[in-house]
Write a protein that binds this DNA or RNA. Sequence first.
RNA 1: GCCCCCAUCGACUAGCGGUCCAGGUCGCGGCCCUUUCAAGGCCGUAGCACGGGUUCGAAUCCCGUUGGGGGCACCA
Length: 421
Amino acid sequence: MSVVVRMAPSPTGLLHIGNVRTALFNWLFARHEGGEFRLRIENTDTSREVAEAVDQIQDSLRWLGLDWDGPLTFQLDRIEDCRRLAGQLLSEGKAYEDEGAIRFRMPDEGVTAWDDVVRGRIEYPNDKLEDVVIVRSDGRPTYNFASPLEDVWDGITHVIRGDDHIPNTPKQLNIIRAVGGDVPVYGHVPMINGADGKPLSKRHGSVNVQDFRAEGYLPEALMNFLALLGWAPDGETTLMGREELVERFSLERVSPSPAQFDYQKLDWMNGVYVRELAPGDFSHRLVLWLGEQGYDWDAELVSRAAPLVQEKIATLSQFPAYAGFLFHDVEPDPAELDGGGAMLAAATEALRGLEPFDAAAIEAALRATADGLGLKPRQAFQPVRVAVTGSRVSPGLFESIELLGRATSLNRLEKAAAASG
RNA sequence: GCCCCCAUCGACUAGCGGUCCAGGUCGCGGCCCUUUCAAGGCCGUAGCACGGGUUCGAAUCCCGUUGGGGGCACCA
């Protein structure tokens, strides 16, 4: 039997990273098994629906590379089928009317149990199960009715979802049995918490896929990081590309205990992926990201600046802070010029007629200048760096000056020399 | 209140009864390299929540305690 799994978000807003992690597990499992990963929108509660949500969900999944099989389906489209089945249950005495709504009759005795792929056997005493409403008095089916029905109709073999659904499972199990459907295998994966152990929310940092994208994380890095939240192939491997993740993933190794989202580790991992990018790919992504964020910086110059920062930045969003001086004026803080007036003046002269004006020649000239003034490289170059880039932290000084060009560099050096006396 | 789930370094985890005085990664600290910042190299820091069992032997199995989390809608 071929595996069919699904992601079934409700279109109430942006995709939460926790839902994405659950989606990722579904996707990895499907791809590993050569099965299907479906995307289904659970929109029976039209009052909470957000217009753009369906598009945003798809954009986010595409960005991460979580492709789905078959058409996007909507729960709303199957309302009639749900009602028909509710009527059937009614006529069979398995459900009853209650103030205009229809309730499903849960068993009163015994237990409802299932073997959860990630947590083992779970049992629920049936006398704790309430007769859930399956159709509201206005005729719309409820989640606990529509969702398991859709799982049956879609031939879902494994329901992999957040563990907040554990209490729903025995109810859905009974409903599926009542309509004579095949019961899927269930697996409840833990939720993701923030550093304080509370469910991950806005106050911890980014939580929506779009936030991570806007902050310049690479989708492959985010995927790698997310996969390791609650799953590990062994005790050693931490860096895995999508191929390897698909190849090694298994539901049995998903941990039942909740994980905390460690933004620092994500930053580290993203930096690793940034550094591993082919130079051309890196600059390409920078250009795209800058465009998305509304910068209208010259793509050619961005591409030339990219190699200078590729080893230094962890996220694409750090690019402007490092290389912004190439695209706009800078205003060095005189205090940070560190009394380097003599060096600044001497550097200006050293560079004025320098040929060729490239990093190697610039380095030789500035080192000679520093020597001439009896300054250590560190003392000599820092004021120059601040003058030229406006900051104490920058890409390599000599490459930066070369890229900036002679005219602008000299101009900034002269201004700084004057400012520092 | 009732029901359910979870529990190894600060964090993510490996460990599925002996090979563990617990391994890897992030973080953190130190040193090296160095034009800043990174990156890189080396060294180090730190953990089986607690209490009972079971067993020749427990991080690993069982029970309890404590601590976290989730659920109890005509939301999904």
